[in-house]
């Protein structure tokens, strides 16, 4: 992913503390979050859990993603193709340019 070029120095300063994350939604999460994907700028150090909290504006969204404060067992979150369960769960960190995919447990084949 190519970085943006900024001429203004405060933006450059900003770039060092912010990161750009792409979020992709699948199955009925597309209706729930009204879109297929979204690019979002976050403070560096934000975890996957932090990102999901930011994404959920409505009670309906929160109910589909969280079970109390834990990730619902029927939700799959992947960071660059890896299930966050195999990383640090909601505490998984992110880097500039990462893609987070969000989908309900799915089946088929």
């Amino acid at each position: 992913m190519k970085g943006r070029k900024n001429s203004r120095s405060e933006d450059e300063a900003n770039d060092s503390v912010r990161m750009k994350i792409r979020i992709k939604f699948f199955a009925f999460f597309r209706e729930l979050f009204q879109g297929k994907e979204r690019d979002i700028e976050l403070k560096k150090g934000t975890t996957v859990g932090g990102l999901l909290t930011l994404l959920c504006h409505s009670e309906e969204q929160r109910k589909e993603i969280f079970d109390d404060n834990a990730l619902k067992s029927t939700v799959v979150v992947m960071r660059n193709g890896t299930h966050v369960h195999s990383l640090k769960g909601l505490k998984t960190d992110m880097n500039d340019g990462d893609t987070i995919a969000l989908f309900p447990l799915i089946g088929g084949g």
Binding site: F26, A27, F28, T74, P104, L105, I106, G107, G108, G109
Partner: peptide
């Protein structure tokens, strides 16, 4: 109780994969 059998396979079919 499971999303796949409750609604996803019905909504997306197996190509949902």
């Amino acid at each position: 109780a499971a999303p796949a059998t409750k609604r996803i396979l019905r909504e997306l079919g197996t190509s949902g994969l």
